[in-house]
Each structure stands twice: as C-alpha cells, then as structure tokens.
C-alpha cells in the first residue's frame, strides 16, 4: 500500500465521521418562507432611501489624496525661470523608459533656467508611465513633481506623449516667462538654495525690450483670457480638446503635492 492510498483511506474515514452540513444563517420562519421570493425587493427599498456613496465622476470630480501620483509638472522658480536643467536623471531613473530629455546650453539671449544648461526637449510618454514617482525622486532641482491630475486618457498615441510646454507649471501671478536673464548678481546656486524669491526690475526690463508683447509682463497681464503657457501642444485636435477640458476642470486642485 502506497502512502497516497493511505491518505485517501484516512480522508474517507474522516468523511464518514463528519456531521451533516448546517447553515449558520438565521433560518426563516413559516411566514418568512412564504415571502422569501420577494424579500429581495425589501433590500432594494431599504437602500433606496439611504444617502449615495458612489462618486459622481465625471460629472463631479473629487480631489484624490494630496500625495496621489498624477500627471507630472515641470516647476519654475519664483522669477519664472525653469527649474529643469536637462540632466536626464529622471529619464535615467524611470523604470518604464517613459521620459525623453535633450538638454542644451543657455545663452545670454536665451536663458531658460539658471546656470548653463536647460532642458530643450522634455517628453513624458503617458502610455508608458506607471506613476511610480521614481523620476521625481531623482530630480536634483525639484523641477519635476507630480500633480494630482489623473485624467490621462486620449484618442491618439501621440497625444499621450506630453511635451515640455504641456508639462510646465502655469505661470504664477508674479512670474515672468522664460527666457530671461537670471537675477543680476546671482549664480545658479542661489536659485538652488531658494534665495531667489521674486522677479526683479532688470528682468522685467529685459523682457520688455526683447518681447514687448509677452503676456506675463505686468502691463500685458489680464489681456489674455487663457494663460498661453499652459496650452497643450497642437499636434491633434483631439488632444487639444482633452487639454481644454483639463484646464477648465482642474484649475482649483492642480499642484496638490509639493
């Protein structure tokens, strides 16, 4: 007799000894048994008058938890210069190979970020991103953070590759759009340490001279309905529609984290 036969025998013996099945649910009485077929309606009726807990998305959007990993954002310093230095550390950290960066040199005429280097091309492919947040951990300048925005669906593949202008944070009230020179007398380290707190007159002057039409100049503010800095690039109409929708609906809760 093999071992397995033995097991079967034991099991059979145990089965023989087992008690018959007994439900531990409360058993209906005779009246209950008569109404049993329609008792389910009672459950329905009871819940009919309870308050709803279903989230009414997309009619009503609810803010997720503050540290929810949503769409990325490329931040700016208080004077409007970009924080991204194009170091590609985010791209390096990304386990999904979702980020593509090409850096370039800042020049006196086109200073996008403090220091010598800035990110000229910046793309995140949301078809690949798994929202792990490793990229924002890697970023040495806090240029890359994540917002709470989660509406990242679209009808085209290209539309889900977000370009730099799609990811850049909206211009704050007192910011001046890049490119423009750094605050006179500062070096990149001053920016990294957080010592630059506002736009200075020289910067405004510079932009006035080089881009008098710039909507972020104090005199031009409020002349445009929509903040031009936060428009999705116009690769496809579908994408643009998504973008408008996002802009309209998310203004109040963007930038939740950091």
């Amino acid at each position: 007799m093999t071992e397995s036969d033995d097991v079967w025998k034991v099991n059979r013996e145990r089965d023989g000894q087992a008690k018959p099945f007994e439900s531990n649910l409360p058993q209906a009485g005779p009246v209950g048994k008569i109404f049993a077929p329609v008792a389910g309606f009672g459950v329905t009726m009871r819940n009919f008058f309870k308050p709803t807990v279903t989230e009414q998305y997309p009619e009503k959007k609810v803010a997720p938890m503050p540290r929810y990993h949503g769409r990325h954002q490329l931040n700016r310093y208080a004077d409007g210069l970009e924080k991204c230095i194009g170091c590609e550390l985010c791209a390096w950290a990304c386990p999904a190979d979702a980020i593509y960066v090409e850096a370039d040199s800042n020049t006196p005429d086109e200073q996008y970020s403090p220091g010598e280097r800035y990110g000229r091309v910046y793309q995140i492919n949301y078809l690949r991103c798994i929202f792990c947040g490793l990229c924002i951990e890697a970023c040495p300048t806090r240029a890359l953070t994540m917002t709470n925005e989660y509406e990242l669906a679209g009808p085209t593949r290209e539309g889900l590759i977000y370009e730099k202008q799609d990811l850049l944070a909206p211009m704050g009230e007192a910011m001046l759009a890049a490119p423009h020179p750094m605050v006179p007398g500062t070096v990149d380290d001053d920016y990294y340490r957080g010592d630059v707190l506002k736009v200075v007159e020289e910067q405004t002057e510079w932009v006035r001279e080089n881009r008098p039409e710039d909507p972020t100049l104090p005199e031009n503010r409020g002349m445009h309905e929509e903040n031009p800095e936060h428009r999705r690039s116009e690769h496809s109409d579908a994408r643009l529609n998504v973008a408008r929708h996002q802009t309209a609906n998310t203004a109040s809760w963007r930038g939740g984290s950091i």
């Binding site: 194009g86 590609e88 791209a91 090409e102 850096a103 370039d104 040199s105």
Partner: peptide, 9 residues
C-alpha cells in the same frame, strides 16, 4: 557635445 546627451541615451 556640451550638454547634448547622456551616455545611456
């Protein structure tokens, strides 16, 4: 080549 790429690219 200054600021053009990273070796892993």
């Amino acid at each position: 080549y200054r600021f053009r790429s990273r070796p892993f690219d």
